[in-house]
């Protein structure tokens, strides 16, 4: 995937198993978010192929990808600002459900994420952390089988981060997840495998423990020599 002369993602071979939970790490500009945008078809890759459950989905549209079961929580919360939390969730539920199922699905997610207190609040009146949480709820309500989470804990309190980790582990029982994060403690708490992105390519793919102790990964994040000090 390139933008003019800038190659944002290049020569990536990435496979995710059914029901797997993978974390993506890498410094800013490594290509993680662009990779997500390719997977959701917001961007159409200039070259290469994307397969979802054996089907070539390279040239399908964003809404078709969503209908196949790919949901995303973006880095900057993408929600319906002028609508209430309940209306946000109703819209999300009506993407997959009809009639009474919509209300049932909304109630289930409200219960699961304990959103009762903010149900009538408009999204533009909520804090950044709350908006993140609601976007997560929107994604869950649409019942995807592959969930992409781009920095899900950004702007959250410590308690919310812990809650998010628990939720992700729970979601992983019924869906595969790819999580972009920078918080190493959070990554350790949720993932067994980590993929490291660097300059638009996959730099390393290993178990969480190995990756988090790899000096080269530290150098990518902090610069050469950082570990030696």
């Amino acid at each position: 995937m390139h933008f003019g002369g800038v190659k944002a993602v290049e020569s990536i071979t990435f496979t995710l198993g059914e029901g797997e939970l993978r974390c993506l790490i890498g410094p800013n500009g490594a290509g993680k978010s662009t990779f997500f945008r390719c997977l959701t078809k917001i961007y159409r890759p200039n070259a290469g192929k994307i397969y979802f459950r054996g089907r070539d989905v390279t040239s399908i549209a964003t809404h078709e990808m969503a209908r196949l079961g790919v949901g995303i929580k973006t880095q900057v919360p993408s929600v319906f600002d002028g609508l209430t939390v309940h209306e946000n969730l109703t819209l999300a539920a009506s993407a997959r459900h009809r009639g009474r199922e919509v209300g049932r699905m909304v109630d289930e997610v409200v219960e699961r994420l304990s959103l009762q207190a903010v149900l009538g609040a408009r999204l533009d009146r909520l804090s950044h952390g709350e908006r993140q949480w609601i976007e997560l709820a929107i994604v869950i309500t649409s019942k995807p089988s592959l969930i992409l989470l781009d920095e899900p804990t950004a702007g959250m309190t410590h308690a919310e981060v812990e809650h998010t980790a628990t939720l992700i582990r729970e979601l992983n029982k019924s869906a595969a997840l790819i999580v972009v994060e920078h918080d190493m403690q959070f990554i350790r708490s949720i993932a067994t495998h980590v993929t490291v992105f660097h300059e638009g390519r996959i730099f390393l793919e290993e178990s969480a423990e190995k990756v988090l102790h790899d000096e080269r990964v530290g150098e990518i994040y902090l610069g050469k020599g950082a570990f030696a000090k």
Partner: peptide, 8 residues
């Protein structure tokens, strides 16, 4: 964009 990401 969010509507498309939901499948509409």
């Amino acid at each position: 964009k969010r509507m498309e990401l939901l499948g509409f």
